[in-house]
Structures are given as structure tokens and as C-alpha cells.
Design a protein around this nucleic acid. Structure first.
Lengths: 192, 192
DNA sequence: GTCTATATTGGGATAGAC
DNA sequence: GTCTATCCCAATATAGAC
């Protein structure tokens, strides 16, 4: 028995990580199984020992990159948009919300509902938290999508900075106490 | 000569309109030439009498749907997001910013730069107009993208309403004169 | 200019050796 | 479990009749 016990689990994990990288960078359609397997030094044939289909891998990759713990907001738009920051389900390309394959479309749609809920929890419930959550979700997804198409690094940084600031405004600033509000701890960490 | 003089121009136009409809609804990859031609009651074969490739048609469709005249902002997010409103280049799916085909990617990226410039012109230049323009561009693109994945019509309307209001806020409200500001004429028309 | 029929490519998925 | 080789289908693009 030439393989250690956990070998299959490790290669499976390697496939998922390679897939996350490529799905974020290119989206579902533009990423081939060949690409994914080359990305972890294997061949096409080996893929189906681990997954039934590319769509199944996509769902799993979304789940895998779900942020853990409370300060998940730190990760959103941290680092330059479209850059090498940690993967979150929403940084998977907006490309895939309209995929032909229902499994893919549903996986993305579900992640969006989840994002909305989490954002909603950050807003003062006394106010119009739903509106703020929806608008900031749209801004976050849009920023990640646009960021991919921008070649100029300076412009990408401007975009990230602008959206970070404005999303923060939407989520926490009240119409009344606007101005000198301390940035919430959600945004204060690791925004370099 | 069984065809009138302008026959070719008219069918070409019909192809572009069918393509606009489908590119908006499904994106570039998920739309086949077959689909496009069926949409204007023709067959695959006829396509290449008008266009060299699907990518070329995409570029042309983007240009075709560029809003004309000054009150272009009326059209943005007018009607329910993801609905049947008039086509603008940015309502083409964010899908396509990461297309494998460089022509497609560039066409979308260029439209985005254009959107940014137009938004920038709407903001008071004395303030941080660049930040507001970038953030609202991201929100608009994100809203259009998310809207596609939402099945619930009520939620789609909420999304559209929220983003309309917040984008308007970003574009015109000053930190000082916030509150009772009259909606600008850009947004006052045809927002039903 | 538009049709039907076909060549060709890319990529998802399978078969069988090792 | 992973490999190579192959099947298969969808979709772009072309050829030639009308």
C-alpha cells in the first residue's frame, strides 16, 4: 500500500485550493478541469476519483472558503480588490451568478443571501438596516467584479479604498452622528 | 434582386438587438450564436454574412447600447434590477469582465472606465468626487449582477430601491446638506 | 443573404492499465 | 489513486447549394 492513509484527503484538499484560486481569478466557465489539475500537479483523469463533476467542486470550494469566526468583515475588501487576499465566497466571480449550470448559479445566489444576512446584523436594527445591507452587498460584489478588469494598480487601490470607506459609512454611520465616528472594530484590523 | 437595399442593414440590426437581449440575460459565454439567431428568426449559417465572430458582435452590441444624450443616469437601475429595462453597456453581465477572450474582457473594461467618468462628472468636483464615482460605479454594477441571481421579485425590488437611494446619496448628497435634499433631476424621471 | 450540411476544436467525463 | 487514451457533446466556424 504505497499511499499513506490521509493521502486522498490531502490531494482532495489540494484540488480544492487550486480550484479556489482559479475560480476567483477566472470564474467557473473559464476554468477548465485541466487547469485545476495542472495547478496541483496532477492530470485530468485523477479528478474524478475525488469529485463527480466540476459543478460539485465549485459548491465545495464555495463552502471551503467560507470565513470562520466573528470578525469575518475584516476580510472583505481587505487588500487590493482583485488581488491575492484571502478567498471569501463572494470574491468568487459575479460571473457565476448567471451560469448555465443551476448548481453553480444556486451556490452563488446562496452565498449572496448569506452575505446580506451578515451585513444586516452589522447595522443598527432600529434604522433601515435592510436597505443598507443590500446596498453595501451590491457595492462589495461590484468592487470585487470591477477590480478584475482593472489593469492599473493605482486605480485598483483607489477603488478598494473608496469602497471600503463608503461601505463602512453605509454600515455604521447614522444620519445624525455622522462625521467623527470611530471606525468600528470590524474594519480596523488588517486593512493594510 | 429579391432583397430591398437596406435589407442587410436591417437584419444586422435585428441580430444586434437579439444579442443585446441575450448577452444581458445570460452573459457572453452562456449565449450561443444559435440562440441569438433563433431570437431573430434566422439560422446559424446566416450569422457570418454579418459578423466575423461572436466576440466582434459583443463589442458592437456594447457600443450599440450606449445611452444617448444627457439624462443617461435615468436609465441606470431604472425599473427592477435584472428586469426588462433599457440596455446599457454596464447592464451587460459582470460575467464578462473575466472572459477568456481578450476582446470581450476589454470591451467590458472600457465600458466601466466610461461609466466612472460619467459618474465623476455628476459629483461636486470640490469634494472627493473620485471616491464617490468609484463607489457608486461598484454599487451599480454589483446591483445589476446580484439582481440576476435573485428569484424573489420583492427582494429584487428592495435591492433596486436600496441601491438607487444609496447611489443617489453618494453622488449628490454633501456631508453638510444631508437630509432634506431634493432628488436631482437625473433621478426624478422614469424611476417607476 | 440565407439556407443545410459539415469540418473542427475544446473540454467534460469515462475506461482500463499500472 | 493516478495515469494515458478515448469517447462524446456542444458550439464556433466554414462550404456550397439555392
Amino acid at each position: 500500500m504505497p499511499y499513506p492513509k490521509d493521502h486522498k484527503q490531502r490531494t482532495r484538499q489540494a484540488i480544492v485550493e487550486s480550484a479556489c484560486r482559479l475560480f476567483r481569478a477566472r470564474g467557473f466557465e473559464a476554468t477548465s478541469i485541466e487547469d485545476i489539475m495542472v495547478g496541483c500537479a496532477l492530470t485530468r483523469g485523477a479528478f474524478y476519483a475525488h469529485f463527480r463533476s466540476k459543478a460539485q467542486l465549485y459548491q465545495e470550494s464555495m463552502g471551503h472558503s467560507a470565513p470562520q469566526g466573528d470578525p469575518w468583515l475584516d476580510q472583505l475588501l481587505a487588500g487590493p480588490v482583485g488581488g491575492e487576499g484571502p478567498a471569501t465566497p463572494w470574491s468568487f466571480l459575479a460571473t457565476d451568478v448567471a451560469s448555465k449550470q443551476p448548481e453553480v448559479r444556486r451556490a452563488y445566489a446562496q452565498a449572496l443571501l448569506h452575505l446580506r444576512e451578515q451585513l444586516q446584523r452589522q447595522v443598527d436594527p432600529a434604522r433601515d438596516s435592510d436597505s443598507a445591507a443590500l446596498a453595501s452587498a451590491a457595492m462589495i460584489v461590484g468592487a470585487l467584479a470591477i477590480g478584475m478588469s482593472v489593469d492599473d494598480p493605482a486605480l485598483r487601490d483607489s477603488l478598494a479604498d473608496a469602497c471600503r470607506a463608503r461601505a463602512r459609512q453605509l454600515l455604521e454611520a447614522q444620519p445624525e452622528d455622522r462625521g467623527g465616528v470611530e471606525p468600528s472594530f470590524f474594519w480596523s484590523v488588517a486593512t493594510a
